[in-house]
C-alpha cells in the first residue's frame, strides 16, 4: 500500500447553539490512497471540505468537528497506523517528525519577539535533546543552505523578513526532521506570484532532496499544473475525480473538472470564458444524489437520486460520474 490510505472518511461539524442544531457535512465519504514520494494535489473551491480534510489527516480533530466514520491509515514503514485512534502524546510524537503541516497563515508559528534561530532551537528541543549548541547552529545553517535560503535569516527577527521569506522559513522549520508526509494547505495563497513561484520551487526542492510525500491543497489549478504529480478534485465534501496531473488537465471526465479548467483565463488568450452556472452547495443541506447535479449541464435522472461511486476508468484515473460509469458499464 501507499503511505496514506483513507477509507470512506466522514467528518461533520456539529453545532448546537441555543437549540439551533446544525450538521455541516464537510467530508462525506472520501476514500483515497496516496503513494510514497509523490506530490498529491487536492483542488476545490472554498468550503468544499478540503481544509477539513487536511485537519483530519493531521489528526487535529476538535469539536465541533467530529469524525463520524472511516479510517485514516498511515504507513511509515512499520505497519499501518490509524491516526484517529492515537492518544494525544502519541500524536505529538509523530507530528513534525513523521507528518508536518504548512498552513496558509503559518507565518504565525514564528514568535515575533524571538530571533529565528531561537524559534528553531525551541522547536527542535521540544522533540529531541540538543547536545552541542555549535553543532546545532551548523546543522541549521546546512539545512537552510540546502533549501537555498540565506543564512543571515537565522539572526533576524520575523518582522525583518518579507512575507515570502517568512513562509519559506516556516517551510524550513517544518522540514527539519525530514517528515515522511508534508501537508501543505494553501501555502502560497496570500503570497504574490513571484514569491509563490519561489515557495513552490522550494517545496519541490525539498521533496526531491528528502523524498517525502507532499499533500498540496490549493484552489489554484495553475499551481497544481506546475508541481503536482496527481490531482484530486473535491466538490462538496467528496472527491469527484482523481488522476495524474496530465489527465486532469487534458483528459478530464467529470463535468465539474472540465468546467473548472475551461473557465481559467490565460495571458495571451482573450477568448470568452464562462463560469459554472449556479452556486456551490450549502453543506448543511447538500443536494441529493450527485452533489453537482443542480449545476451540471449533462444531468440525468439517476444523478438526482443516487450518489455516483468513484470508479477507476483508466490508468489510475478515477471519476465519480454516472456519465462515465454508464458508458463503461455498457461497454462490459
Amino acid at each position: 500500500m501507499g503511505i496514506l490510505k483513507v477509507e470512506n472518511l466522514k467528518a461533520y461539524y456539529m453545532t448546537d447553539v441555543y437549540g439551533t442544531k446544525r450538521t455541516v457535512r464537510a467530508i462525506d465519504g472520501i476514500s483515497v490512497e496516496i503513494k510514497e514520494n509523490e506530490i498529491f494535489g487536492i483542488a476545490g473551491e472554498s468550503s468544499c471540505g478540503k481544509t477539513t480534510f487536511m485537519k483530519v489527516l493531521s489528526g487535529a480533530v476538535k469539536p465541533p468537528l467530529t469524525v463520524v466514520g472511516g479510517k485514516v491509515l498511515y504507513n511509515f514503514g512499520n505497519g499501518s497506523l490509524d491516526i484517529l485512534s492515537l492518544q494525544k502524546d502519541e500524536l505529538r510524537k509523530i507530528r513534525w517528525k513523521s507528518i508536518s503541516c504548512i498552513l496558509q497563515g503559518s507565518m504565525s508559528v514564528l514568535n515575533p519577539v524571538r530571533k529565528i534561530y531561537k524559534t528553531f532551537r525551541d522547536f527542535v528541543e521540544a522533540h529531541q535533546k540538543i547536545e552541542k549548541k555549535g553543532d546545532f547552529m551548523r546543522q541549521m545553517r546546512d539545512h537552510l543552505g540546502k533549501l537555498g535560503l540565506p543564512r543571515e535569516v537565522l539572526k533576524a527577527y520575523p518582522h525583518h523578513l518579507s512575507g515570502g521569506m517568512k513562509q519559506r522559513v516556516t517551510i524550513a522549520l517544518a522540514t527539519i526532521f525530514k517528515p515522511s508526509v508534508i501537508i501543505a494547505d494553501e501555502p502560497t495563497t496570500a503570497l504574490d506570484v513571484i514569491v509563490q513561484r519561489g515557495v513552490l520551487q522550494l517545496l519541490k526542492e525539498i521533496q526531491k532532496e528528502q523524498k517525502n510525500t507532499i499533500i498540496l491543497v490549493t484552489h489554484d489549478m495553475a499551481v497544481h499544473a506546475n508541481i503536482a504529480d496527481r490531482i484530486a478534485i473535491m466538490y462538496a465534501g467528496r472527491i469527484v475525480e482523481e488522476a495524474k496531473a496530465g489527465d486532469i488537465l487534458e483528459n478530464s471526465l467529470h463535468p465539474y473538472t472540465q468546467h473548472l479548467i475551461d473557465s481559467l483565463p490565460m495571458i495571451g488568450d482573450k477568448s470568452h470564458r464562462v463560469s459554472i452556472p449556479g452556486v456551490p452547495p450549502n453543506l448543511a443541506n447538500p443536494p441529493s444524489g450527485c452533489r453537482f447535479h443542480p449545476r451540471c449541464s449533462s444531468v440525468m435522472g439517476i444523478c438526482r437520486e443516487e450518489v455516483p461511486p468513484l470508479i477507476e476508468v483508466g490508468d489510475r484515473h478515477k471519476v465519480a460520474c454516472f456519465l462515465v460509469s454508464k458508458e463503461s458499464g455498457d461497454g462490459k
Binding site: T15, V17, Y18, T20, R22, A284
Partner: peptide, 13 residues
C-alpha cells in the same frame, strides 16, 4: 455570550 455578534450569526445559521 447570547448577544455577541458571532453567536448571533451562529444562531441565525
Amino acid at each position: 455570550q447570547y448577544i455577541d455578534p458571532r453567536t448571533r450569526l451562529l444562531r441565525m445559521g
